[in-house]
C-alpha cells in the first residue's frame, strides 16, 4: 500500500526495461527479417528497403500451403476449444456442485494430473495407430480429438477453480426456484463464470494453435497446421529464411490480437492455472 507513493529508483526501471528489450528484440528481429530480401538477410544488412516479397510467397506461392495451414489451424483450434470448454464446464460443474463422492473427484483429478505430466508424444503413437485403424488418421476429427484431450486437464482445473467460486447457495437457490440441472448450469452458473470461460477458452485456443508434435504425427499435407507449415521451411535443403520469418510473423497474429484485446482474461487464466 505504502509503495504506491514511493517511486522506484531509476536503476530498477533500467533493469526492467533492459529485460523487456531482450525479450522483445528477437520478435522485432524476425518481423524485420520477414520484410527483407533473402540477400539482405544473408548480408546482415540493417539498412534495407522493405519488401512484401516473402509474404507474397507465403500467401500466394504455388508451393506454399500456408493459407491452407491457417485454415486448418483455425478449424482445429476453434472446434477443439469449443469441445473442451463444453466438456470441462460440464465436468467441473458436476464434480464440484453435484455432490460426487470424494474418490470420484480425486481419481479424475489425479488422472488428469498424471496425463498432463506425460509428454503427449508418448500417446501420439497409440492415437496414430487407433485413428488409422478407424480411418481417422489425416482427418480434422483425429487432431481435434487429440487436442481436446491434451487441453482437457488444464481446462478442467481452470473451470473447477472458477466454478468453485460460484457460491453453493446460488445453485441451491436456483434448485428451490424450480430449476433442473441444465437450467441451473445454463441460467445461473454459466453467466457467472463467463470471464472464466473466456480465460480458459483463450488459453485452449492458443495451445491448440501452437501444438506441434501431435499435429505432426496425426496429419499430412491436407490437414497440416500452421506450426507444421513453419517447420517445413526449416526442413527443406535450402532454407527459405525470409519466408520462414514471414510465416512465423503471420502465425503470431492471432495470439497477438488476443494478447492486446483480452489480456485481462489471459492473465487471469495464467495465474489461476498456476494456482493449482
Amino acid at each position: 500500500m505504502t509503495d504506491h507513493g514511493r517511486s522506484a529508483p531509476l536503476a530498477r526501471h533500467a533493469v526492467l526495461f533492459g529485460f523487456a528489450l531482450i525479450v522483445l528484440f528477437p520478435f522485432l528481429w524476425i518481423v524485420m527479417a520477414s520484410f527483407k530480401t533473402q540477400i539482405a538477410l544473408l548480408m546482415g544488412q540493417w539498412k534495407f528497403s522493405p519488401t512484401l516479397y516473402s509474404y507474397d510467397a507465403v500467401l500466394n506461392g504455388k508451393t506454399s500451403d500456408f493459407v491452407t495451414n491457417f485454415k486448418n489451424s483455425s478449424i482445429i483450434a476453434i472446434t477443439s476449444t469449443t469441445i473442451v470448454l463444453t466438456v470441462a464446464t460440464l465436468a467441473a460443474f458436476s464434480l464440484y456442485r453435484l455432490r460426487w463422492a470424494d474418490w470420484v473427484l480425486r481419481i479424475l483429478l489425479a488422472w488428469s494430473v498424471i496425463f498432463h505430466m506425460v509428454p503427449p508424444i508418448t500417446l501420439a503413437g497409440a492415437w496414430y495407430t487407433m485413428f488409422r485403424s478407424i480411418g481417422l488418421d489425416n482427418t480434422y476429427a483425429g487432431i481435434i480429438l487429440a487436442h481436446t484431450t491434451i487441453n482437457l486437464p488444464m481446462a478442467l482445473w481452470m473451470m473447477g477453480v472458477f466454478i468453485k467460486d460460484v457460491p453453493k447457495e446460488l445453485v441451491e437457490a436456483a434448485q428451490i426456484d424450480g430449476a433442473k440441472t441444465p437450467r441451473v448450469l445454463w441460467n445461473v452458473v454459466v453467466p457467472i463464470v463467463r470471464p472464466g470461460l473466456a480465460a480458459t477458452g483463450i488459453l485452449c485456443f492458443i495451445f491448440s494453435w501452437n501444438e506441434f508434435p501431435v499435429a505432426l504425427t496425426l496429419s499430412q499435407r491436407a490437414t497440416a497446421t500452421v506450426p507444421l507449415g513453419i517447420g517445413k521451411y526449416a526442413q527443406e535443403n535450402t532454407i527459405a529464411f525470409t519466408e520462414m520469418a514471414a510465416a512465423s510473423t503471420l502465425s503470431i497474429v492471432p495470439a497477438f490480437i488476443l494478447l492486446i484485446v483480452a489480456q485481462r482474461f489471459i492473465v487471469r487464466g495464467l495465474t489461476s492455472g498456476a494456482v493449482k
Binding site: 446460488l170 430449476a179 457467472i192
Partner: peptide
C-alpha cells in the same frame, strides 16, 4: 426434490443471482 416441495428459502448470504 426441493423445487416441487412448495417451499421458498432465504439464505444467509441471500444467494441473489449476480447477473
Amino acid at each position: 426434490p426441493a423445487r416441487d416441495r412448495g417451499i421458498s428459502m432465504v439464505f444467509q448470504s441471500y444467494a441473489l443471482y449476480p447477473h
